[in-house]
Amino acid sequence: MPAPLPSLATQAAHLVELGLLTDHGTLDPAALHSAAAELARRAPEGSLLVVHPRHLPPSSLAPHLRRQVRTRSGTDERPGFVVVDMPDVDAFAPTGVDEPTSDVYAVVGPDRGDDLANWSPAEASPEIAGRGRSPLTLAEGLHWVLQDPTALERNRCFMTIGSRLRKPDGSFDTRTPAVWISNGTGRGGIERRGAAKVGWCWWGNRHTWLGFASAAARLA
């Protein structure tokens, strides 16, 4: 199971230490620390700190994911990646989710949704809503794995159906984003085996190893 998340202040420091704000972001580290301190006065323990994707889009977060992989010579730390057939990853926007407009916000009660494994996104969406929760966006899911790599486990990974892509005609693209552990097959390459992988699955398909990450609330 995922480990308990550290304090929001610790999470903010981790994002700064990773170089995310200086390498990719448009948010000042001081502003991030200030926002985390303010949110900490209201957010319950175990909340997740999220920088709005206008500052840190998913494509900038994925390469900073890290997983330790055992090799014949010892261990290797492998960075995350986005599958090559998802060049439009940042175009998957919050859908059916009340995403705060603030630069920084907190996700309350993130859950991996293991009990929904082998449900399709079409089936899981109304179930999550019926529980009074909302699905995580892709950016939120990536922030979670950045803070806690154990949020991904073999056969216990998750979809982020709070992000969807609209086609020019207004209909939805049937791809739905997910985060899982690469098996090193296909175009990902054997050198990426064990790395965190950002990819997609079909809206109507089921997968035994993918749950549906969700949140109890969001605080801005």
Rank of each mutant, 00 (worst) to 15 (best):
T75N: 03
K167D: 07
L56W: 11
V104N: 07
E191Q: 15
A216W: 00
P53Q: 10
P6Q: 12
R175N: 11
T174H: 14
P87R: 00
K197W: 05
R66A: 14
V198W: 08
K167S: 08
V145E: 14
W180Q: 08
R41A: 14
A13N: 15
L146R: 08
G194Y: 02
G25D: 06
G113C: 05
A43R: 12
L152R: 00
L142E: 05
R175C: 06
P58C: 11
S171A: 10
A216N: 10
D169C: 06
G46K: 14
A139Y: 03
A37C: 00
S182V: 10
V51C: 12
G211M: 02
S73W: 00
A40Q: 14
L138H: 03
A37N: 07
R66M: 03
T95K: 02
R156A: 15
H52A: 11
E153A: 12
A124E: 02
P121M: 07
P58V: 01
L65C: 05
Q11F: 01
I190Y: 14
W200K: 15
E127H: 13
Q11Y: 09
H33D: 13
P126N: 07
L210E: 07
M159H: 00
A117K: 14
L136N: 05
M1Y: 00
A215S: 15
G170L: 05
A117D: 06
H14D: 09
D85W: 10
W144H: 08
L39I: 07
P53C: 11
V97I: 10
H207Y: 15
G204D: 13
L39E: 08
L116Q: 03
V84D: 10
T185R: 02
V89P: 00
R175L: 02
L116T: 01
L136S: 01
G109H: 08
G186S: 11
H14V: 02
H207K: 07
A220Q: 15
T150I: 09
P79H: 09
L56M: 10
H33I: 07
R112Q: 13
S134W: 04
V145T: 12
P87A: 07
R193K: 13
W144P: 06
R66W: 04
I181L: 15
S163V: 10
P58I: 08
A217Y: 01
G74D: 08
K197A: 14
